[in-house]
Design a protein around this nucleic acid. Structure first.
Lengths: 171, 171
DNA sequence: TATTGTTATACTCTATAACTATA
DNA sequence: TATAGTTATAGAGTATAACAATA
């Protein structure tokens, strides 16, 4: 499919896609401009890096950051149902279903029908789930967070965590 | 809180969804556990908040953070082609095509075939694009970043930006 | 042969409406 | 009527292979 993007641009004379321009810019570094000062931009790039590292550090257990957070929350909050866990993590209930299906099929957790309210599914870890979670915590602490401490230093790491928590809470 | 959330579950008998459990947990706050100390978790939540605020602040111009960053980079780096701009922003070239189609259809930028290398499309803003970008910058500075300064304070904001840049670079 | 822009495609995330079974 | 879990679905975002034009 060619030439569908012809777009008549008049604004001044910006040129159409067919026009030609004499560009002899040398391959210097691209300027980031105001992007360097944009907090959201650095936040996003840093987040992608850190998630990549997290996945790499727990690769042997095949857990995503989201799965790890779910296991952690189930373990720390016995007796909670799907809606409560999902809401806490900002996961929409419909999207939580497939996630739990996956964790349950790997026998890391189970849904148990509540006696009080038979609509609810109480979530709990299996023994296997507790084992995997414990291993994941160790990998995260000794590899992932340890590396963060190296790069930032403990004081900076704590300060960063505090500011991010502030943003997530008060912003 | 009352009951024991009975049911000792083990790997061999994970329990089926039909089973019943006696849960009388009261609706106290859910414990975040080690999640509060996980930098990646706070980073992700903060990033989502900040992107939401960015979108809200420039809603009148209908620009996403990604679109804003593309316009900014094109403006600051005249004569660059699609691959160079996309790579700088971590956007894959195939995914950059639809994004540029959208920006070009809104007459914010144009592709111009390079005279040196007729495979390349040099990117440049239209007058309209420059106007929209200037307005977006103003909204970002006076609404979005100003609010960040209020919540964090200028010193903390600068420190946060520095640490995030460090992570994006050295991690 | 290699590269630029492109198409096609697929997989993950996220978001909304509506169904079911319970309450 | 309302709620918990679920299904279906749609839209972003992201990833890879391959093709045409050009180098």
């Amino acid at each position: 499919m060619t030439g569908s993007r012809a777009a008549e641009l008049n604004a001044s004379k910006p040129g159409k896609a067919g026009d030609v321009v004499d560009d002899h810019e040398e391959a210097g570094q691209i300027k980031m401009g105001e992007l360097s000062e944009l907090l959201g931009y650095s936040l996003k790039r840093a987040q992608l890096r850190i998630f990549d590292d997290f996945i790499r550090c727990v690769a042997s257990l095949n857990l995503t950051p989201a799965q790890f957070s779910v296991l952690l929350l189930i373990d720390r909050n016995p007796g909670r149902n799907q809606t409560e866990i999902a809401n806490t993590l900002g996961i929409l209930r419909p999207n939580f279903v497939a996630m739990l299906d996956s964790l349950e099929s790997r026998e890391l957790c189970v849904r148990v029908r509540s006696a009080n309210d038979r609509r609810s599914h109480i979530l709990m870890l299996t023994d296997n789930g507790r084992t995997i979670l414990a291993r994941a915590k160790k990998l995260v602490a000794t590899k992932h967070e340890a590396r963060l401490n190296e790069v930032l230093g403990p004081a900076n790491r704590a300060a960063l965590l505090g500011m991010l928590a502030t943003l997530a809470r008060d912003f």
